[in-house]
């Protein structure tokens, strides 16, 4: 029974991840349309709701081109790797509390490993390889430049990201994401105790997912399409899709680490049964994630792109010292208040 529940949970999370990523592409086009005073896609289905399906069919139907000069196996391997690493992080995310079915307790988290947050950092750091291998295997200088930009950017911002997470770990005293979520009951969210750490983490999340204003690896005015210049058809689709999955997972991580995950204020005051509380909590978690995704898109269509040297200066000379200061302040705070 336990096994069946876990297996169906894995499938459900996978399907939900893909669905959210699919409709994120639609949301992106609608939000950009609103911000630019346009209407956006409205032809396929009611309100254009079938647009993602039409896009998917278009991607599948397009001609598949593999450059003859490129390293063929690595060229095919790269988008697969990008998708694989994007989908792996959701395994340790606590999507909700416990469900009680027939007197037995089931956790809405696939794997509660005791180093959950490190696991996510590890997967993020491996996620660079999809872009790097793709950029190199294309045998195109623009692709290579995009890949090199992506790798140096992600390495630079990973440090500040890890350091800002350390401050949260110091407060919780545990590396498990479930424990971090449990440590912020009601409205005692970490964002109120760690405002500086939250801002650093948010900026790093933008850089790690290669989203604007940090989308230099694929900036079309300089590099045509960056690392996916030579890609076509569904392989290009995989790269683009992996970006949306990454965005979903980082929004989930931000919601879990800084916004209390499935916690919401006054949830225990309504006298609901435990199962209802769990389901409402999960809905609340997804609401927070949806707002996060909206924020990512809002920023993308509002801010201009950084210049490369500005990006590096921001990462190394501003964010890393600030996050070290944040760690020291958190340590002092723990000593003084506990």
């Amino acid at each position: 029974m336990e096994l069946i529940f876990k297996a169906s949970l894995v499938v459900a999370i996978f399907v939900v991840t893909l669905l959210v990523a699919l409709y994120s592409t639609f949301a992106e086009r609608k939000i950009s349309a609103v911000l630019q005073d346009r209407i956006g896609p409205n032809r396929a289905g009611p309100f254009g709701l079938l647009q993602p399906l039409a896009d998917g069919v278009k991607m599948f139907m397009k001609e598949e081109i593999i450059p003859t000069t490129s390293s063929k196996w690595l060229f095919i391997f790269a988008p697969c790797l990008a998708m694989l690493t994007a989908g792996m992080s959701s395994a340790v995310m606590p999507w909700g509390g416990n469900l009680i079915i027939d007197g037995e307790t089931y956790s809405l988290q696939v794997a509660d490993i005791n180093i959950g947050i490190l696991y996510i950092l590890g997967i993020t750091s491996v996620g660079i390889y999809g872009i790097m291998i793709g950029g190199w295997a294309s045998d195109n200088k623009y692709s290579l430049l995009g890949a090199i930009r992506a790798s140096s950017q992600m390495i630079s911002y990973e440090l500040a990201m890890g350091l800002s997470v350390i401050a949260v770990v110091m407060m919780t005293g545990d590396l498990s994401i479930n424990e971090i979520v449990k440590g912020q009951p009601g409205a005692h969210w970490n964002v109120f105790y760690q405002p500086l750490g939250f801002i650093i983490f948010l900026i790093c999340a933008f850089a790690e997912t290669n989203r604007a204003p940090f989308d230099l690896p694929e900036c079309e005015t300089e590099l045509i399409g960056g690392y996916h210049t030579e890609y076509s058809s569904m392989k290009l689709g995989f790269f683009l899709f992996a970006e949306y999955i990454n965005m979903f997972v980082s929004c989930a991580l931000i919601a879990a680490v800084y916004f209390g995950g499935y916690n919401m204020p006054f949830i225990n005051d309504f006298g609901w049964s435990p199962n209802t509380v769990t389901i409402v909590g999960t809905a609340c978690f997804f609401l927070k994630i949806a707002f996060g995704i909206f924020f990512f898109m809002w920023v993308r269509w509002t801010l201009p792109r950084f210049r490369y040297d500005q990006l590096m200066r921001l990462g190394w000379q501003i964010l890393i010292p600030l996050s070290i200061i944040n760690v020291i302040l958190t340590g002092l705070g723990i000593i003084v208040f506990k």
Partner: peptide, 19 residues
Amino acid sequence: VQIIVYTGAIMVLFLYVIM
């Protein structure tokens, strides 16, 4: 830590330099 430090950071720099 093996994955974060070696595969995620050091080998990325290796790949970077070789590219």
